[in-house]
Design a protein around this nucleic acid. Structure first.
Ligand SMILES: NC(=O)c1ccc[n+]([C@@H]2O[C@H](COP(=O)([O-])OP(=O)(O)OC[C@H]3O[C@@H](n4cnc5c(N)ncnc54)[C@H](O)[C@@H]3O)[C@@H](O)[C@H]2O)c1
Ligand SMILES: NC(=O)c1ccc[n+]([C@@H]2O[C@H](COP(=O)([O-])OP(=O)(O)OC[C@H]3O[C@@H](n4cnc5c(N)ncnc54)[C@H](O)[C@@H]3O)[C@@H](O)[C@H]2O)c1
Lengths: 223, 223
DNA sequence: CTCACATTGTGAAAGTTTTCACAATTCATT
DNA sequence: AATGAATTGTGAAAACTTTCACAATGTGAG
């Protein structure tokens, strides 16, 4: 017996996972447009990377293309979808129904296959106990019970910076394993919770800097 | 005489610039709270990095701290502000007054010292020729003239993906040198224009992946 | 005044990510 | 069938980023 002692599941970098998600989005379009096959350099063009990088990324999920013909769109899309976990499957919670929160609700709602925000929370009574863009809005007091009831594992934080850590702690205790954080404050959480920060002000300041000084190529990318 | 032939202005990485912007934000708070000095490890805690990294970052702008006492908050803030170009100085344009665009307008408006959105554009007549959150909204047809008139160098794109490249081209021709792009499409522009992509869907998918699989530490960060 | 200590500044090591470059493979055409 | 052109898969190099670790340096206590 003894656990098979896997070759220690090769861990895949955050960067690579992000790009794989992009490839999925692109392939969804290609398949919709009835494209049969696609070359690495075409994918590179559509995501802003290099062909070599596309091939390397696809290597990690064991995708196979054929020389001179490239990758089969449908097959590759299926591989990516399986690898990344089906979209639409994951239920997402939103905390903070302010200006940004409402934009995200309308966005989630519109996305075709995308991730779905199924519950939103706020502390302001006038924002709760209603349905916005098809999503039920609850008072923050019910956060734990709703998250557990619906077995939600992913959340988005869109509350003011001062409230972010408190909200994050509660989410983590309620069982959330991954958070997208829009508040400009670092979250201190156990490493079992994955956090992705989106800091719009920081991005703007970067752009201001490089717009003023000489630019720095528009390489790499994305949040 | 002869131009001093600078030691070839050491080019500073995008990552570092982003963190310097974070330090500035943190220091603004510290100064507001009348803190005299700050240690590298305190800054690290408040931005989610390591003390060594903070020191290395500050090194590139030639900041000086004193052993055992750390950095002088006021002086460091001044150095950062000078290095990054004064905030509030830079005028920003917004293209796309949809759900996200309006959230950004209200945000810009609220930010204390922050970057200021001074002109917004949309193609829909019902969104233009009014003032939202203190920002004048114009029809997209007037983009070139307004941008040139106000000498705007930085813009935010918040239009649907299909329109993004077209808008970007027009911005670049009008003289914009840096763009924050929220549309999930890569922009192909001359390298003299700096582009920072913020891809919310990609970030969410990353979080979904790492929430499902074992996590990957909440290291590094931000957009 | 001297000592013990906390902290900076930084060269060098370690780690990570991207790019290069090329053999192997497939397909279209002759 | 053989040739040539295009493209994949991937080891190895290059480039870049972070961490380590420690000498140098102020600071405050005794
Ligand atoms: N608006 C933007 O475009 C934008 C862009 C980038 C980042 N952000 C960040 O996103 C966050 C939200 O921004 P916003 O513009 O939507 O602000 P907002 O003030 O419009 O909305 C914040 C919402 O959070 C709610 N809230 C406050 N404390 C709470 C708590 N403890 N629990 C639950 N809900 C609480 C408020 O009632 C409000 O509805 C802020 O941290 C902001 O810095 C906003
Ligand atoms: N809403 C979100 O939370 C969110 C999050 C991440 C990314 N995004 C992306 O940001 C962009 C905008 O999202 P949104 O939710 O605000 O969409 P939206 O449909 O609410 O707004 C888009 C706006 O762009 C305008 N527009 C369309 N074509 C234009 C053109 N050629 N020139 C000028 N204006 C034009 C429309 O009139 C509309 O007002 C999209 O690319 C979306 O994928 C949105």
């Amino acid at each position: 017996m003894s656990a098979p002692s896997y070759p220690e599941a090769i861990l895949i970098s955050e960067r690579t996972i992000g790009r794989l998600a992009q490839y999925r989005r692109i392939l969804t379009e290609l398949v919709r447009d009835n494209l049969e096959t696609v070359h690495s350099h075409q994918l590179a063009l559509r995501c802003g990377g290099s062909a070599a990088q596309v091939r390397r990324d696809l290597m990690v999920i064991g995708a196979e293309g054929s020389p001179n013909k490239g990758y089969k769109c449908a097959k590759l899309l299926a591989s990516l979808a399986e690898f990344l976990t089906q979209p639409g499957t994951q239920k997402v919670a939103l905390v903070g129904i302010g200006n940004l929160g409402r934009a995200l609700l309308s966005y989630s709602h519109k996305q075709q296959p995308g991730l779905l925000i199924v519950a939103a929370f706020d502390i302001a009574p006038d924002k709760t106990n209603k349905v916005i863009d098809g999503c039920r809005c609850f008072h923050i007091d019910t956060l734990e019970s709703v998250i557990k009831e619906q077995n939600i594992k992913v959340a988005i934080i869109a509350v003011p910076g001062e409230a972010a850590q408190l909200v994050a702690d509660r989410l983590a205790i309620a069982g959330v394993r991954g958070i997208v954080n829009f508040a400009p404050a670092p979250l201190h959480l156990p490493p079992s919770v994955f956090v992705e920060n989106i800091d719009v002000t920081m991005s703007l300041e970067k752009v201001v800097y490089f717009a003023a000084k000489g630019t720095q190529s528009e390489r790499n990318k994305s949040a």
